[in-house]
Write a protein that binds this DNA or RNA. Structure first.
Lengths: 217, 217
DNA sequence: CCTACCGATCGGTAGG
DNA sequence: CCTACCGATCGGTAGG
């Protein structure tokens, strides 16, 4: 997991940034407590859904009183958006650093796909990684404008997959149109959020093996 | 689409059943209006989510006053459960009648998988088919007891896939463990609810082609 | 199935 | 970040 300031999902131990980067007009950035609210919200939104989660629930989980979240976030919507944006930034950062790792570009396409799949599973299923699942399953709850902002990040994320899938398609290892293949593959991975249980048999490695074996010739 | 009484998803024209089969203690069965509530609820639950949908919204969509849904359903939860149960019964009926169609048993395994995939896409994406998507994406909102009842139906549904996948695995056409393969494949299909747009390029046929090509050797 | 209504809860705010 | 609070909304009900 990267340690880059306020975008790391579970880095509750982050020191207050000195030159604090104010992110949007909707939020303040007071370091510690704000992160506590984000992680509490992500966990609750994932377990109960956005609409079924109370700002009072979130406040209590972060050890605050009922009105205090609104000192850090303008609204419940802004809190949801911050969770999703933060999750997508972390996922993008992890996927990019995997792709840019030395020697990665020289790997055969099927090994590159395997990398993408593994990191994706880890982003979804790793311990404490609630941010991206919330983004996947609660985007309906976002106001249209903020949903468009997120769509941009999602599009960037998908663009990491396209060249790899194109190469696989060209070499005959992928037998479906690349556009639909990407949607179907990401769907197969994203759905794991619904059924994966770390206490049960399969590990993230097992899932990665099964998925790549399933999709490739 | 089958026409079997109150379980058909979009059959708003159903006549009142004579020997009315009272289904559970939680609901009455007055035919017409009850079905109107179910279809209105399914549509709203799908678009807005369960928690964000008001019983007043549902009543208005069915042309009733705010208190009237509770004449037909004991609670908002009971309405959600009825939507899900009805959707799963319809899906099971459609999948079974496809499997039992004359000549189907003689088809090669890859053609049987194609059938399952096509019917599944149609259940999810066909016009007015909101019931099963609600079940897929709102089961979190169900009380534990009713979730267990649904799990039974889901398990029956999945059991239709297992022998086909086993046959494909044995003949080398499927290269992943059957258990994980089933989860991944159904995930790829289920996720289409999030992105499929009938007004855009791809048709359900296209999706079926792409999915079978992607999964099979 | 409608009318009229209740108790509880919720997002959000003022003022410190 | 807390205290105290408001206005609105919501699931559900009694009585017809």
């Amino acid at each position: 997991m990267s340690t880059d300031s306020d975008l790391a999902e579970v880095d509750t131990t982050a020191k207050r940034p000195r030159g604090r980067p104010r992110k949007t007009v909707d939020e303040r950035d007071d370091g510690n407590r704000r992160v506590a609210l984000l992680t509490a919200a992500a966990s609750l939104f994932r377990r109960q859904g956005f609409a079924a989660t109370t700002t009072r629930d979130i406040a209590a989980a972060a050890g605050m009183q009922s009105g205090s979240p609104f000192y850090h976030f303008k609204s419940k919507d802004a809190l949801l958006f911050a969770v999703m944006e933060s999750g997508m930034h972390a996922a993008l950062a992890r996927q990019r650093s995997a792709v840019q790792a030395p020697g990665h570009a020289g790997l055969p396409a099927h090994a590159q796909l395997r990398q993408l799949v593994q990191v994706h599973f880890d982003v979804l299923l790793g311990p404490g990684n609630d941010f991206v699942p919330v983004m996947l399953y609660e985007s309906r709850s976002l106001p249209a404008r903020q949903r468009k902002l997120l769509a941009q990040l999602i599009s960037e994320y998908e663009s990491l997959w396209t060249p790899v899938l194109n190469a696989l398609r060209d070499s005959g290892q992928l037998r479906a149109p690349v556009g639909l293949a990407r949607l179907l593959i990401l769907g197969a991975l994203n759905w794991s959020v619904q059924w994966f249980d770390p206490k049960k048999g399969a590990s993230v490695q097992d899932l990665t093996d099964a998925a790549t074996a399933l999709f490739l010739n």
